[in-house]
Amino acid sequence: MGGGITLEHFLVLGLILFLLGAYCVLTRRNAIGILLGIELMLNAANINYLAFAFFGGARYDGQIFAIFVIMLAAAEAVIGLAVILAIYQNLRTIDVDATETLSG
């Protein structure tokens, strides 16, 4: 396996993906963009789970968590999109800066 792909590669990939996602979440004003960013961060986490599971011995914890996360992401996306839809119907925009009516 020399010169092959090691755990570090996966971790670096996950980190890059996570940072990209985080950046996307923090900078995007479009609500859907933010959702996409979150999706990226979740998948970065999934990569880490799988990598640890693969390199950590014959254990399935990582896979199971990853499947959970995917399922969670799907549910989250559904709710998130529903909320965005509701915001759009009320405010005719999906710009997150316009959602300050919730401000206390």
Binding site: A22, L26, I34, E100
Partner: peptide
């Protein structure tokens, strides 16, 4: 008083989380 934290600005929350 806590209500003040609830700015409604999602970005604000996100920065807060960060």
């Amino acid at each position: 008083r806590m209500r003040r934290l609830q700015t409604g600005s999602i970005n604000g929350y996100l920065y807060g989380i960060l």
